[in-house]
Design a protein around this nucleic acid. Sequence first.
DNA 1: CCGAATCCTACAGGATACTG
DNA 2: CAGTATCCTGTAGGATTCGG
Lengths: 132, 132
Amino acid sequence: MRTNLPDKPENCMVEVAMEILGGRWKLAIVYKLLLQGTHRFGELKREMTGITPRMLTRQLRELEEDGIVSRTVHREVPPRVDYALTETGRSLEEIVRLLDGWGRWYLDHRPGTSPSNPEQARQTADGPAGMR
Amino acid sequence: MRTNLPDKPENCMVEVAMEILGGRWKLAIVYKLLLQGTHRFGELKREMTGITPRMLTRQLRELEEDGIVSRTVHREVPPRVDYALTETGRSLEEIVRLLDGWGRWYLDHRPGTSPSNPEQARQTADGPAGMR
DNA sequence: CCGAATCCTACAGGATACTG
DNA sequence: CAGTATCCTGTAGGATTCGG
């Protein structure tokens, strides 16, 4: 395996999940592949504003090693490579959606911030949307 | 605020969430406070095996700044400080539980690993427990 | 088009010792 | 007990250039 995961059967496997998913762009990539399906390398690069090709490659390779995304090379000219979520990757759907919702909610509720766009964010008084 | 969060209303707030929760011990701390309620500094230190006092302090302070954790100092001798989740912190419950479940499931299903303890892990054929 | 190769560095994270 | 104060290090992440 790529990283040495802590073997702590007693408790908290959150750290394990974070070890796999903690990369700067990883969950964002999963998010894209989840909502918009298979992407080519260039498509991902275009949509992930700010990422360098090197970083995109690395994050994708690590996700591949960890069994989250699959990589299919079409032997054509010009080259074409498709990235998609594996079954394991798709099992992250609920988590990714909740994280996205939480982030959206948090941006509008973090300490010392007044809601920037009240009608866009459908927040409630007691938590992020869709969490109950 | 502590960190400069990307203001990208178009999409993917997963990165925002990760910015807040991405620390090495943060979600583990949230997990503890969530399942076992208020903790003192020393209790947390004892239960988070491997963490140094410096790291514990830092992660707790950042969580506090971000409104996830509350810190109450009891003016006694010897000193006593309690840490608990805020309402915002508690809004992470479902996410943390799912991540823990996913991590547990993943440990038993990652590529090239045979289930180490089949009867302890209650996994299914198509994903982590409690995700459908 | 899809990367690989090289070089670089800030900072997350840690070891250790000390204190009100 | 609940932290600081110093000092240190690895590596995650990046900028840039080149190749099949």
